[in-house]
Computed example of a mutant assay.
Amino acid sequence: MPRFSFQLDVRDPPAKVIGAMVDFSERRPEIWPNLTARLFRVHALGPGSADVTEGTALPGVDVWERVTYEWTDSVVRGVLVDGRIFEPGGTFEFRVEPRGDGSRIVEHYDRRSKTLLGRGLGAVFQMTGGAPIKRSFRQVYGTPS
């Protein structure tokens, strides 16, 4: 059961950070290099909410999940509706606050694995404090100088 929190300082201001997190246009897989374009689908999109399927193609297996997103100008929250490796009901929340010229992202992640692959990836996330997620954020937002 991967459950962890982290904070990460990035160089982009809060509005830009939140903007990329909730960009559900066809550009989303370009913005987020860990996403695979053919797995991305928007089911519903409204002001402050979205229902999407997104995922990553790993060697030999597509890891996807359907997530309901809700957001404000400082918080993005997702609830897992369905997925290949994690149980429905898992959550993540990103709080974004100003930090110098950039932002601080505070993340809380809570999932329940339903497959062996989910337990393996979950263990990596848990033991590294979300290092793969942090790495993707650094790719998108950069780090402060």
Rank of each mutant, 00 (worst) to 15 (best):
F94S: 00
G89Y: 00
V76T: 11
G78Q: 09
E107P: 01
P98E: 15
T91V: 13
I85E: 01
F94A: 01
R95H: 08
G100F: 07
E97W: 07
V96S: 05
T91R: 15
E87C: 10
S103V: 09
V76N: 06
D110S: 11
V81F: 03
V96A: 05
E93T: 08
P98I: 15
T91K: 12
F86I: 01
G102P: 08
F86L: 01
I85N: 00
F86C: 04
P88A: 08
T91S: 08
G83R: 00
I85W: 14
R95A: 09
E97G: 03
I85F: 14
G100T: 09
R84L: 02
R104F: 02
V76I: 13
L80M: 12
E93N: 06
R104S: 05
I85S: 00
H108I: 15
V106D: 14
G100M: 05
T91W: 14
V79P: 05
D110E: 08
H108P: 00
R77H: 14
P98H: 15
D101Q: 14
E87T: 09
G100D: 04
V106K: 15
F92N: 07
G78H: 08
D82M: 12
I105L: 07
D110I: 13
I105S: 04
G78D: 11
R99T: 06
E87K: 07
P88D: 13
L80C: 11
Y109D: 13
G89C: 01
R84M: 03
G89F: 00
G100K: 08
F92S: 09
T91Y: 12
P98C: 14
V76G: 04
P98D: 15
D101F: 00
E97Q: 08
E93H: 08
D101H: 13
G102N: 03
G102Q: 03
T91H: 11
D101L: 00
D82F: 11
Y109H: 15
I105W: 02
E97D: 06
I85D: 00
D110W: 06
D110G: 12
G78S: 10
V79G: 12
G89E: 12
V96W: 07
V79W: 01
E107D: 07
V106I: 11
Y109A: 09
R77M: 03
D110A: 15
G78M: 05
G100V: 04
V76E: 09
R84G: 08
V81M: 08
R84I: 00
R95P: 05
F86D: 05
V96I: 14
R104W: 02
G102S: 03
G100S: 04
R95C: 06
F92V: 02
R77S: 11
R95S: 10
V79I: 14
V81K: 13
F86W: 07
R95G: 10
G102F: 13
R99P: 04
I105E: 02
V76C: 11
G100C: 03
R77T: 14
E107Q: 11
R99N: 10
G83H: 01
D82W: 05
V79E: 10
F92A: 11
G83A: 09
F92E: 12
L80V: 14
F94P: 02
